[in-house]
Design a protein around this nucleic acid. Structure first.
Lengths: 244, 244
DNA sequence: ATAATATAGACGTCTATACAACCAAGGAGA
DNA sequence: TCTCCTTGGTTGTATAGACGTCTATATTAT
């Protein structure tokens, strides 16, 4: 049943986690039902109980399992869609839905940071930042004005690159520079389109705009991007998952 | 330095986690700097390395620390505000900001579930649900129309209770019924006030509304609440943190 | 019947140890 | 000077075992 032949560099707990995850998703372990005890499973997989617990802990974090001390470990009744629990970006998300997405770069240059940008990026007012302003489309329809600021000090390479090709994969670019996007904080408001926005997004002045401000952080907590985002209210909604 | 006298029922890893957290927050371990090695800390606290790692793992999940294999463990440069990373509710949040909050119950009764409600709560259309509609105020200003649906089957007790006192602490009520709020999924849109909303929220027809749909889940994945929420765009914003 | 108690099974915590993987820095050799 | 390699330090994975705590159930006493 379970090979788990070693020597491939994949940790045991990862393989076991994967095996358990499959059993849950394909229904071998049914929703709400108790799975075998840790003792039993560790014997089944031929690993120590601590290793097995490592796998189960991960699946609990994913929301697939839950424990009741003194009773057992159970499959959750409701599996949250994986995307919801993750920080994803516009292109990833929309392409996942099978939609054609594209963008047009409106502006791209180095400027001194204004107060709000500097504060979010942990810089001083006036420090150099790169500003990338784009208009984003879903299936030829303009839906979002996107205004990103990234610290010059971290990503000066960007200025020497082909922005058209980079701007669609900023996250990849960050990673190639050694900063993995790990966390973010975003704030959302409902606003109304002013003349500029209405013009760019082909909508009426006063129509609803879903406004978003977001800061992205790398694993070590360095702020790597601050973003203003104006989304057409009639074309865009944002889904997020919450933990307690 | 570190007492950790046992016999109080508090696990060692929790005490150590707390001690480390304090050292981080009060600056004994400075941002970006390396903390002592796991070997060193486990000796310092007089516990095994595995126990110490348990504490550190928790703090990494909180975003206070990060590891670099082969190098060490470091204090994150940017500590996300604790509230942001958590699922919190309206009253908790606003009171934390020192604001006076209150609410008026507009409607409270048992009704058959409509399609969307039934689907979110994992019920069949027409199954009985309890509907609680309230108007919420910050400092005498109406800001939110709040329409919650909860499954009759789980919380029939609610009908026999003083709704005025319960509705302000629904989460506490859920918990007393054995369902701890653990996860949530919410979707946000920008909309415009119709006549009803404009009237209730003392705003003009067409003014922006931050619309929110939310489902809450207990630890075992049972959906326990589905919510429509209409927030005055000029008074309300939503902040969430994201993980990757 | 009801209440107190014992028990078995399950998860929760903790230890002591071992080796693997990885990284930084310094030394050896070309 | 430059490259390669060794080495020490640190985190990553894994083990076997012990004991604590909690829950549900069966048993016993009242």
């Amino acid at each position: 049943m379970d090979d788990l032949t070693k020597l491939d560099g994949v940790p045991l707990y990862v393989k076991i986690r994967q095996s358990l995850r499959e059993n849950i998703l394909n229904g071998s372990y049914k929703r709400g039902e108790k799975i075998p005890s840790e003792e039993e499973l560790s014997a089944q997989y031929g690993v120590s109980r601590m290793t097995l617990r490592h796998s189960i802990n991960d699946l609990i974090d994913e929301g697939l399992l839950y424990r009741r001390q003194g009773v057992g470990t159970f499959v959750a009744h409701h599996h949250l869609a994986r995307d919801h629990s993750r920080l994803t970006n516009f292109f990833e998300n929309s392409r996942m839905d099978g939609l054609q997405v594209s963008e047009k770069v409106l502006d791209f240059r180095q400027i001194p940071a204004k107060y709000q940008v500097a504060k979010a990026l942990n810089l001083k007012e006036g420090d150099p930042v790169i500003c990338i302003k784009t208009l984003r489309f879903i299936e030829t329809e303009p839906v979002t004005v996107h205004e990103a600021y990234i610290p010059m000090a971290l990503f000066s390479d960007l200025l020497n690159m082909d922005i058209e090709s980079q701007s669609q994969d900023l996250w990849g670019f960050y990673e190639r520079c050694g900063y993995k996007v790990k966390r973010g904080v975003q704030r959302l408001e409902a606003r109304q389109a002013d003349e500029d926005l209405a013009d760019m997004l082909s909508m009426q002045v006063g129509a609803p705009i879903l406004y978003k401000e977001r800061t992205l952080f790398s694993e070590d907590g360095t702020p790597i991007e601050f973003l203003y985002c104006f989304n057409r209210g009639d074309m865009y909604s944002i889904t997020v998952s919450l933990l307690r």
